[in-house]
C-alpha cells in the first residue's frame, strides 16, 4: 500500500514515469508470485485430501464385501466382519448424541437468551469453548476415573458418557450462534402478543433456528463417530456380538486401531475396510450438514 501510494504520488517528468513503470512491473511480479504460491497452497490442501481418500478407497475396497456387514469380528483366518463394531459405533454415537444434545441446546439457549453478558454466561461460554477443543483423550481419562474405576469395569455406558461430553460443546456453539441470528423484532413481536418467554424460545426461536441446530447435531454425530481416544479407556471394545451397555462394547475406531497393528493380513484388511466406512460416513454427514444449512438460510 505504501508502495502504491509513493508511486502514485509522483507527478512529472518522463524519467519518473519510467521508474514508476519499472516499479509497477516489479510490484506485479511480486503479486503474481504470491498469487501462484497461494494457488499452490490450495492445491496442496486438495491433493492431501485426495491422497487420503484414494488410499482409503484403494485399500478399503479390496477388503470390502457383504461379509463386513453380516459377520462379527472373528479370529484371524476365520470369516470375520465388522458387524459388532459398526453396531457398537452406531449405538454409542447415537445415544451419546441423544444425551449430549438436549444439554447442549439448553446451555446454548441460556447463553443466547438469558445470560448474554452476565459473568456466569461468559464463564459458561468460555468453559464450553475450552471443552470444544480440549484433547479428547483427556475426556476418556476423566470418564475412566469417574465411571470405569468405581463401577468395576469398562462399559458401553462409559463410552457413551465420554462421547456425550464431546457432543455438548458442539451443540452449545451452534445453538447459541443460530439463536443470535434471529432478529430481536421477532422476539418482541411474540412477547408483545402476550406469550411467555419460554414459549417464545421453544416455539419461535428454536423453530427458526432448527436447521442450524440440526446441522450442529449432525456435525456432532460425525465428530464422535470417528473418535477413538475417548473410547480406549471407556467402552474398550468387544470381540463378540453385544448390545449390553453395561459390558464392554465394540466400536469401529477402536477395532480399526487394534486390527491395524495386528499380525494378520485379514485383520489389517478389515481395518482398512472399517477406515473407509467410517470416513465415508463422517464425510457424508458433514456434506449433508453443510447442504442443509445452506438451503435453509
Amino acid at each position: 500500500m505504501s508502495l502504491a501510494l509513493s508511486s502514485m504520488s509522483h507527478p512529472g517528468p518522463r524519467k519518473d514515469v519510467a521508474t514508476a513503470a519499472r516499479l509497477g512491473a516489479s510490484r506485479k511480479r511480486t503479486d503474481r508470485i504470491i498469487r501462484t504460491l497461494c494457488l499452490a497452497a490450495t492445491i496442496i490442501g486438495l491433493v492431501l485430501l485426495a491422497s487420503i481418500l484414494i488410499t482409503l478407497f484403494y485399500r478399503g475396497f479390496e477388503a470390502m464385501s457383504l461379509r463386513v456387514f453380516t459377520h462379527v469380528t472373528a479370529a484371524p483366518g476365520s470369516e470375520g466382519g465388522l458387524l459388532n463394531a459398526i453396531v457398537g459405533s452406531l449405538i454409542q454415537s447415537l445415544i451419546g448424541t441423544a444425551i449430549g444434545t438436549p444439554i447442549g441446546m439448553l446451555v446454548g439457549t441460556y447463553l443466547a437468551e438469558y445470560a448474554k453478558d452476565s459473568w456466569l454466561g461468559n464463564a459458561v461460554r468460555f468453559v464450553s469453548d475450552i471443552l470444544l477443543s480440549a484433547p479428547s483423550i483427556l475426556i476418556g481419562l476423566f470418564v475412566y476415573q469417574i465411571l470405569v474405576l468405581p463401577f468395576g469395569g469398562f462399559s458401553g455406558w462409559a463410552g457413551i458418557a465420554a462421547l456425550a461430553i464431546i457432543v455438548i460443546p458442539i451443540v452449545v456453539r451452534t445453538t447459541e450462534d443460530m439463536l443470535q441470528l434471529i432478529p430481536n423484532t421477532l422476539r418482541e413481536a411474540v412477547v408483545g402478543l402476550g406469550a411467555p418467554k419460554w414459549k417464545m424460545i421453544v416455539l419461535i426461536c428454536w423453530r427458526a433456528a432448527i436447521a442450524g441446530i440440526i446441522t450442529g447435531i449432525l456435525l456432532a454425530v460425525a465428530r464422535v463417530a470417528g473418535e477413538t481416544a475417548p473410547l480406549l479407556f471407556t467402552s474398550l471394545g468387544n470381540n463378540a456380538w453385544s448390545t449390553d451397555l453395561s459390558k464392554p462394547m465394540s466400536s469401529l475406531p477402536v477395532t480399526i486401531y487394534a486390527f491395524a497393528g495386528s499380525p494378520f493380513e485379514d485383520w489389517i484388511a478389515l481395518a482398512w475396510a472399517g477406515a473407509l466406512l467410517i470416513t465415508l460416513g463422517v464425510l457424508s454427514l458433514n456434506i449433508l450438514a453443510r447442504t442443509l444449512l445452506r438451503s435453509r438460510i
Binding site: 490450495t42 485430501l49 487420503i52 460425525a222 477413538t228 475406531p253 491395524a260
Partner: peptide
C-alpha cells in the same frame, strides 16, 4: 479444505 478437519484422526494415523 474444511473436510480435512472432518477426517477422523485414526485415519490420519493409518495414512
Amino acid at each position: 479444505v474444511e473436510l480435512l478437519a472432518a477426517v477422523p484422526s485414526i485415519i490420519y494415523g493409518m495414512w
